[in-house]
Amino acid sequence: MDFELDDEQTALRDAVRRLLASTYATIDGRRASTAKAPGWDEGMWGRLAEMGVLGLPFTEEDGGMGAGPVEVALVAEQLGRVLAPEPFAEAVVLAGGLVAAAGSAAQKEQLLPGVVDGTTVAAFAHFEPGAAAGAPPRSVTATQDGDGWVLDGVKEPVLHGAQAGLLVVSARVDADGTDRTGLFVVAADAAGLDRVDYPTYDGTRAARVTFASTPATPLGAAGANASDVVALVTAHAQVALCHEAVGAMATALDLTTEYLRTRKQFGVPLKTFQALTFRAADMYVSLELARSMALWATLVLADGDPDAAVVAATRAVVQTSAAGRHIGQEAIQLHGGIGMTAEYAVGHYTTRLTAIDQLLGGRTAHLRVLADHVGEYDVVDPLAV
């Protein structure tokens, strides 16, 4: 595997970093953007679109840039470094990715240009109240109504669901007596659609979305089972969120080490105390383990094997989840009381890392998935040479 960035990838990373620094150089920029609707900087969203960032995951035939998972990862990490609230992974990689993966040629031609140019924010309505992470849809059902389809049920939380101009909805479809996962497109002004917006604890937005005989259009072939498509596109979004978490962890570590170098206790810098430097070193180890796993998973995605991609994303989530919790908690502890204040940045990074962990499904759930398939893995004899 080649872990080196080429010139174009390096230029993309640096350009995105400079652009984000214009608005999010300090935590005050993020607070200002999340304090008002839609919960991110619309000017920044437009500039990301002009740069081509929102088109990275899509092929040139679909109006995108024809880039791959590596480029997506570079952008996600830069967003995480400054806690930029723009919904790149959620709206572009996940919701837009589902349209690109499951939509018909006509649907992609109609829907993707708005995602690429930033005029349409898409949201994936998949989570259901009380359902476990990764569970197929159950409470939201899709039924045929004449020549069309209607949806009934509740989705929550739907990230940026109230601001989205396009909803991609997963629903249970009873086809020939067999439950299947169907994907549907719902317009923002559809009849019977109710969206209740609320802030989440990390400063972003989510919504409770209720469908009451809401007209919907099947994404792709009507009645087709979209489980595999959802799993693959979700894996791409999970890896992107892992890279966002890596960016956030890197900044949290930088803030902590700088604090240890400059803050004095008993007349000497905190870095003088060996126990504190050991704890900072452990944070660095966690960061690099998470970075390595996220990068490895990205390269697996780039290889194009769907089954391997889903497993790689699961493994990356396990490592990222553990690292995020460790680094976030240690960053606050090593800062002392100031780490708990809303005015200081480090607490915001820990909060975002916690939110990403929940979005990824949590470490325990992914460990359970890996454990269920442990018998299928090859056996390696460490003594064999």
Rank of each mutant, 00 (worst) to 15 (best):
M1I: 04
M1Q: 00
D7I: 03
E8H: 11
A15Q: 14
A21S: 15
R31W: 06
T34D: 06
T34I: 15
A35W: 12
P38D: 13
A49H: 06
V53Q: 07
L56N: 03
R81Y: 09
V82K: 04
P85R: 01
E86Q: 13
F88S: 03
V93C: 02
G96R: 06
G96V: 06
G97D: 05
A101W: 01
S104I: 13
A105Q: 13
K108Y: 00
E109P: 00
Q110C: 02
D117R: 02
V121C: 05
A123E: 04
P129W: 05
P129N: 09
A132P: 01
P137W: 08
D145K: 10
G146C: 04
G148S: 00
G148H: 03
W149D: 00
Q163K: 05
A164G: 07
L166T: 11
L167A: 08
V168T: 07
R172W: 09
G177C: 04
D179L: 10
T181K: 09
T181P: 04
G182L: 00
A187M: 05
L193V: 01
D197Y: 06
A226C: 04
D228E: 15
V229N: 09
L232H: 12
T234N: 14
H236W: 14
A237I: 00
L241H: 11
A245I: 03
G247L: 10
T251S: 07
A252Q: 05
L253R: 09
T257V: 15
L260A: 01
Q265I: 09
Y284C: 02
L289K: 11
M293C: 05
M293Q: 15
M293D: 15
L295V: 05
T298C: 07
D303G: 15
D305L: 13
P306G: 11
A308I: 10
V311G: 07
V318F: 03
A323H: 01
H326V: 11
G328L: 05
E330V: 07
I332G: 01
H335R: 10
G347K: 00
T351I: 14
L353D: 01
T354W: 08
A355M: 09
L359T: 01
H366Q: 13
L367A: 05
V369P: 00
A371H: 11
V374Q: 13
V374P: 04
V374R: 14
Y377L: 11
P382H: 03
A384Y: 02
